[in-house]
Computed example of a mutant assay.
Amino acid sequence: MHNNQRQSDSQRYAPFALLAVAQTLTQKALRAGCACAGRYASGENCMIEEVFPHVGEILLERIFNEDKSLLANFLEIEESNIQSVHRQLPLEFVGSPVIFDGFSTLDLGVLLKNNKVLPIEVKLGRFGLAKASVNKMLNPCSISAHTSEYRVSGKLFAILNRNYDSELAKIVGNTELCTRINGETHPISDVWGVIARDSVISSWKKMPPDFNGKQKIISIESVCSSYGEHEFNNLVGGIFSGVNFYNTWFPQNA
């Protein structure tokens, strides 16, 4: 069953993962300019390192759906409370005129037995996540001034931290922050998660950002080491194999 699932995931995810790889490699090549071939070759590991934040959500979704006990342990809940894990879920205030743009999506959403979704923000970069930078992401959400609609302006950190300015808070009133999975609406839990690097988490322990205290901070290194090096490498290899990228990206009937 796992082999069939891995093949299915390869077909679903590999084109998106390789697009992320291509974007990263292109950016690196442009920055490198006339760098010699030797320097380029020596930098391949660095490029692979930079690709990880782009594909990390895909890997985490698979890991947590395969091993719900692993996720339950990090969230400090019973495994039986977890139904499934989903990626890139939309946001909405049900019954409110306020809307979110298409970029405001949950990195990961854990569908719980009580039909609520526990949201997880995935931050896998090594830089730009010090207290001052994160606090900027926590600035209160507001109503965008660039549209005639009631559209939310703000970062996901602020949304999950429930940081709304007075105007937005007044408009949304008592409406619930929700998401949708397979067409069904689910309330988003007050408890939320952040997955980050050990080095970032260490810096937060020394100088904590202004989180609301309802966050669960999870180490990506701990997740992947608990899953296992061999299993992790097989998972990554499976996502990047078994797909005809030419036919996927250039369908003949397009």
Rank of each mutant, 00 (worst) to 15 (best):
V51T: 10
I239P: 02
I159R: 03
K155D: 15
L138F: 08
G213W: 02
P119E: 02
G193H: 03
A29H: 01
C224F: 12
M47Y: 14
L168E: 02
I195R: 06
T185F: 05
D190V: 03
V194E: 00
V122Q: 10
G154V: 06
S148A: 14
L156G: 15
K113F: 07
N3K: 12
A35V: 15
G56F: 08
P53E: 07
S226C: 01
P90Q: 04
Y150G: 05
E229I: 09
E76R: 12
F64Y: 14
I239K: 01
E66S: 08
S241W: 04
A41N: 00
N244E: 09
A41C: 00
K113P: 00
F157C: 03
P15N: 07
S96H: 08
G56I: 07
R180G: 01
G38F: 01
L70P: 04
T26D: 13
E167P: 00
A72D: 02
Y40G: 08
G193E: 06
Q7R: 15
E121D: 10
T175M: 07
K205S: 05
A130S: 08
S222W: 01
N253L: 09
R197F: 11
A14P: 01
F127K: 12
N233P: 00
Q27F: 12
G43N: 07
R151E: 15
T248S: 13
G237F: 09
P251C: 03
N139R: 15
F157Q: 05
M1R: 09
Q215S: 05
R180V: 09
Q215Y: 05
A22M: 15
I217M: 02
V98T: 06
G56V: 09
S203Q: 12
I217V: 13
L89R: 11
S42Q: 11
P187V: 00
T248W: 00
G95R: 00
V21N: 11
M207K: 15
L18E: 07
T147C: 13
G183Y: 07
M1F: 11
N65R: 13
I120M: 00
A14T: 09
L60G: 03
L129W: 09
W249P: 00
T147F: 10
T179Q: 03
C224I: 12
R62S: 14
A196C: 10
S225V: 08
W249I: 09
S10K: 03
R39S: 14
R6P: 01
C34W: 11
V191E: 09
R151Q: 15
S69E: 13
P187A: 04
Q11I: 15
G242R: 09
V55D: 05
H146K: 08
Y40E: 12
